[in-house]
Amino acid sequence: MAQIKPCEPSELYNLLNRRGSRLAEINYLCLMDARETQDYRISHIITAKNAKTDSEGLFLLPEALEVDSMQHVVVYDSNTSSLQEESRAVLCARVLSGVSLSPVLVVIGGFQRFSALYHFLRTEKIMYTITELENLKQYPVEILSGLLYVGDEKQSADCSVLREMKISIIIALSQESLKGNQTVVNLPVDDSVDSDLYSSFERICDLIASHISSGSRVLIVSPRGRSRCSAVTIAFLMQHKKYTLQEAWSYVLRRKPDMRPNSGFLQQLSDWELHLTGGKVTDISKL
């Protein structure tokens, strides 16, 4: 029997916005809405399936999904706040945990909390084609809830994404200068092992900190959203959260599994760790 674990709304948000249209993969995500059917039909989280019950009100396994093959299994109801509750989400999770090989996650705060934070991921749509799933809008990954996001240049150029997410400032790491209605800070740098990010770490980290301290939402982008923006995000967490390189690396990797800072940036992050802590705590050969 799989474990049942709590899940913050931001974790589900990031699962729904993995790069490469992961939602189109049949074994990627099993997202179950354990609310009453009439509530589900009014509005639900995008791609969620309504959990069915039998005549006695006991939850049934979903017919069209092979739960045991799913990489991620997530359940929500209206507002479950604890796994100790005998709520609809917890009861549904227990049934799913009997066949799942992955932990079953229960969204804390349920639909009410998730939809308050990410209203743009609510829908009435029930059925999707593979093409529709492949073309769903993808939003930047959330690093610090309601404050710091990481994405690519396509997302930074989408006015609807920036408006829905209430992004105030964009930090763009690219040779091409970006423009937009938001404040844009352009840092021209190549994704090359010889490129120098280190000399800009302190200035960028201070800039990010000054904005999030006032509640502004910051989006860090690079052309593909994998190397440069990930390196800067890790550097910021090392300074702002006092993380080691290993801790910051693991923190970002959990939220953005496709991050790939190049080897030159990795060495500069190791030098940044030395600058911040007075020693090189992390063995970068193991990252």
Rank of each mutant, 00 (worst) to 15 (best):
D271L: 06
S87N: 00
I284H: 10
I234L: 08
I169D: 11
R217T: 02
M70L: 03
L61M: 07
L121T: 08
L147S: 08
P261F: 02
S250R: 05
K125L: 08
S168K: 05
R260S: 13
A64T: 15
F111D: 13
V67R: 06
Q84E: 14
C229T: 04
L133G: 12
Y28Q: 09
A93C: 12
L237A: 05
K166Q: 10
V161I: 15
W249M: 10
I208S: 00
T37G: 07
L133T: 13
Y149F: 12
C92P: 11
R163D: 15
K256D: 14
K241V: 00
D39M: 06
I170K: 03
T233N: 14
L178M: 09
L178H: 01
A116L: 05
Q246G: 14
S222V: 06
T53E: 13
R113Q: 05
C92N: 03
D191F: 11
C229G: 05
E273K: 07
L207R: 09
E124N: 09
E134S: 04
D190P: 04
N79E: 13
V107P: 01
T47Q: 09
V141N: 02
S97K: 04
K137L: 12
S21N: 08
N186A: 09
I169V: 14
D158T: 00
T129I: 09
I45S: 04
T282V: 05
S21G: 11
V252G: 01
R228A: 04
V90E: 05
N181E: 02
N181S: 09
Q38W: 10
I42Q: 13
L12A: 12
H44E: 08
